[in-house]
Design a binder for these strands. Structure first.
Lengths: 246, 246
DNA sequence: CGGATGTTTGAGACCTATCAACACCAGTGG
DNA sequence: CCACTGGTGTTGATAGGTCTCAAACATCCG
């Protein structure tokens, strides 16, 4: 589960895309990473910053968000262990979003300098990291479709589908499609673009229809097919289980 | 303006990020590109495809879109000459969106193979292309903020701001902040996530407030500051005028 | 000139926001 | 141990932005 070392988390993730040779594996293993603990609800990087490092989520959940001038928050992505939310900063000097912890987190910082050295030496790793940012972009697009064209019910169902799949991929889902979702309804509201009150009502509808069960911060999906259908969920956009183009 | 060769369009665009050396410039110049003409409203690449080439827009406008199961369309990006809408396909085998012309277009196809050869040889070009995809992602995020948190009026103002800036960057804006926007209100509706009739009404409001003037398919922005304010527009997310991290 | 396409208008319905009150829980500190 | 507190979730009532449908209107083009 999360009893994994930071580097193994990364190696396992990149290794799903194509077979890493021993040298690449070792290079990743040697990548200097500074581990830090972050309290819940704290910015890890802020919009306007010019970071000289990337951060990988090791434990906990983080989100990418932005505020409108009226102070309304849109959460644009949720990140789970193994993700690198600000990989973009490697090539975009100034942050155009903020990244915050939503639970207490441990994160690993990797200096851009080290990252660049790694990429220079191993072009296949460059491609793999590039690909990671492309998958992130694909998820943004799917969220855009959700927020633009689906109603609240479908949006929430869709988000839950996505989280189940992504958490499964990092071994954070228990038997019976149950997983921890330490997220406030108000945060979920900011993610799907509806009000917190309406999240509450929509959750009730989902529960009433037997698509979701909730207990504290634990979610279970009793009927995966029904939830998928309600959320119009097609995992294509997550680009799992396909090799990188040779 | 667009009396430019395909390769110069590309060189000028990448050259804005960092100084291309003569060798890089020549390599780009030598990149094989197959030019094609596309009728309006035709898919150039479709969701589910496994392309072996990228396409660069040379003339006209294209869009990236996706359909919900109810057949509602969300346009996720508009692309103008110089853009490479499906650069992602270089590393993501299967298309998760469709790309269509919205006007008659000429596009240039570049084989992945050639692209990869170029990137292998010139790591700085790899970085530059990677960066292009990151800017695309940043635009997705800003659109997500718009669709999720701003009302119809602000969304449309924001989109017009973005188009003005991006078209200016490729020399497609005339004196007096006037530019061609050969886009149907129904297409604009799909881009900002509201209905076509509401686009009509919102356009009227924008005109009434003196933020926009329209004539045929030509848009002019009489008061840039007011439009920017109405759209909460901050060009940071476009990542213009900043060098790539060295 | 006819027909197709795009835009505008009006009216009513619908989804979702907002506001306020309340219940619940977990800490906290006296 | 118990009031107190702040954060979270729920509920009800009302308001408001946007949708839908339909029809009229404008524009373009062969």
């Amino acid at each position: 589960m999360t009893g994994d070392t930071p580097h193994n988390l990364m190696i396992r993730k990149l290794g799903r895309i194509f077979h890493l040779c021993e040298e690449e594996r070792q290079a990743l293993q040697d990548l200097p990473m500074q581990v830090a603990v972050v309290k819940a609800d704290h910015d890890i990087v802020s919009i306007g910053d010019r970071p000289h490092q990337c951060c990988m989520v090791l434990q906990g959940f983080t989100c990418v968000y932005k505020l409108s001038y009226q102070g309304r928050r849109q959460i644009m992505a949720l990140h789970v262990p193994g993700d690198i939310p600000d990989l973009q900063s490697l090539h975009l000097k100034v942050m155009d979003v903020s990244i915050a912890s939503i639970t207490p987190c441990t994160v690993g910082f990797i200096q851009h300098e080290d990252m660049r050295r790694l990429c220079d030496r191993y072009p296949r790793l460059t491609a793999a990291f590039w690909r990671e940012t492309l998958v992130d972009a694909s998820i943004f697009r799917e969220w855009l479709l959700s927020v633009g064209q689906r109603d609240a019910y479908a949006r929430m169902a869709h988000l839950l589908c996505e989280l189940l799949i992504r958490l499964k991929a990092v071994g954070l889902v228990e038997e019976g499609n149950t997983f921890d979702l330490p997220i406030t309804q108000s945060e979920m509201a900011d993610a799907v673009g509806i009000s917190a009150v309406h999240v509450s009502r929509t959750f009730q509808a989902l529960r009433a229809n037997g698509l979701v069960e909730t207990e504290k911060m634990k979610i279970t999906i009793p009927d995966w097919d029904k939830l998928k259908q309600a959320g119009e969920f097609d995992p294509l956009y997550l680009h799992l289980d396909e090799g990188i183009a040779a």
